[in-house]
């Protein structure tokens, strides 16, 4: 653990997430139009564009302030359920981080705190066909990889792999939360849009953070 993840590293993560969300906006919305209200890509893109805009307008001083600002922007600007869910995720991450740079273990603890925030907010469980189906395996894989002595980069790659597998595993599931739950059995056979954007969040972490000296 050299000197950890700095504000600039986390900003790079947020910018990369915003970039991939914009790139996948139509795909996310198409997934949501199959089983939801057809706004996930549009909403996430609007929220992440606003989050990047806020970082530029008022650059935060430390890692916790940065993630808090992102969270506050998302709870306000996304519009759909992903606003309070992703917003709470980043707000809880911020609450778990101090003002100092985060080492790998601190980042993993913050990610776990974010996950717990999503659980508290959405009251979903693994298998309900939600973003948790990507986020839970990602946090588990990250903890496991770090515990076995892997560096942050390799551990994040393991987390992103787990998130993608979790995303793919939502396809046969019947939705039990959110708009998709109104469809009941007809929601099976479709990939969950929230799990898809969460897999992008972990991919963005690999792209932006895996090379960091921590």
């Amino acid at each position: 653990m050299a000197d950890g993840l700095h504000t600039a590293d986390l900003e790079a993560w947020i910018r990369e997430f915003a970039r991939v969300v914009a790139e996948h906006r139509e795909e996310l919305t198409a997934l949501d139009s199959a089983i939801g209200d057809a706004d996930h890509g549009t909403n996430m893109d609007r929220g992440m564009t606003a989050a990047v805009g806020a970082l530029e307008a008022a650059p935060p001083a430390d890692p916790a302030a940065l993630l808090k600002q992102v969270g506050m922007t998302l709870v306000s600007k996304v519009g759909g359920a992903s606003g309070p869910l992703y917003g709470t995720f980043f707000l809880r991450m911020a609450g778990a981080l101090g003002p100092e740079p985060a080492d790998a273990a601190a980042f993993a603890r913050a990610l776990r705190a974010g996950l717990e925030g999503v659980v508290a907010r959405g009251k979903a469980e693994p298998g309900d066909k939600t973003m948790l189906d990507a986020l839970v395996p990602a946090c588990d894989a990250l903890d496991e990889a770090l515990a076995s002595g892997k560096p942050l980069g390799a551990a994040l790659e393991a987390a992103a792999d787990a998130a993608r597998q979790g995303r793919d595993a939502t396809i046969p599931l019947v939705a039990r939360k959110g708009r998709a739950s109104y469809l009941g059995e007809r929601s099976a056979g479709h990939q969950d849009p929230g799990a898809t954007s969460t897999a992008l969040l972990l991919d963005a972490a690999v792209s932006a953070l895996a090379g960091s000296q921590s």
């Binding site: 609007r46 306000s76 519009g79």
Partner: peptide
């Protein structure tokens, strides 16, 4: 939403 669309804003 701010732009008159469908959505909610916690703030």
């Amino acid at each position: 939403t701010e732009d008159g669309g469908l959505g909610t804003d916690a703030v």
